[in-house]
């Protein structure tokens, strides 16, 4: 059973997303909406990470050695300027999508396991992940034309 491995992947992705949101908030302080909203979105991931701990423990004994390298890194660090912001948001979007997809995978497995608590955790958390993704999409759509066309 590989559920523990996938929970580990989700855990890692949420941590990565939280840390990256915080970095972007800090780095793009001159964009006030970015600062405050990224901080808020990071706090949502923080709650997910805490709630995830018990499931990680619960399934720990079933952990297999990883069949493939599940972890990979997207976000290498923040960038500068309007285009830099767009690229940072782009990476955040991919990170959040990774988290969203992981919830979907685990949600499927939780049903096969008849683990109602894990299922509910996934359903509640992924709602917030979707809101993270939607905001990133909205903000990227707003930034893209100005950064790619008018700037420079």
């Amino acid at each position: 059973m590989f559920i523990a491995n996938y929970l580990g992947l989700l855990h890692g992705s949420e941590i990565h997303l939280r840390d990256s949101l915080k970095k972007v908030a800090e780095h793009h302080k001159n964009e006030p909406d970015i600062e405050y909203i990224c901080k808020m979105l990071a706090s949502w991931s923080e709650v997910h990470i805490q709630n995830l701990e018990r499931f990680l423990k619960q399934y720990e004994e079933h952990k297999e050695s990883e069949p493939d390298k599940l972890q990979h890194s997207l976000f290498q660090g923040t960038r500068k300027g309007g285009l830099g912001l767009l690229r940072d948001l782009h990476d955040l979007y991919l990170l959040a999508s990774e988290v969203e997809l992981s919830y979907m995978v685990i949600l499927q497995a939780s049903q096969a396991l008849r683990d109602k608590e894990l299922e509910n955790f996934c359903r509640d958390s992924v709602k917030e992940t979707e809101r993270q993704v939607n905001w990133l999409k909205t903000r990227i759509k707003q930034s893209a034309p100005q950064s790619l066309v008018a700037a420079g």
């Binding site: 001159n30 964009e31 309007g82 707003q142 893209a144 100005q146 950064s147 008018a150 700037a151």
Partner: peptide, 20 residues
């Protein structure tokens, strides 16, 4: 109409960054 019309605070931010 590709995104919402730009709000004032963002207009001034674009001025600050030089793209307006």
């Amino acid at each position: 109409h590709w995104s919402p019309p730009t709000h004032a605070m963002q207009i001034f931010r674009y001025c600050e960054q030089g793209s307006i």
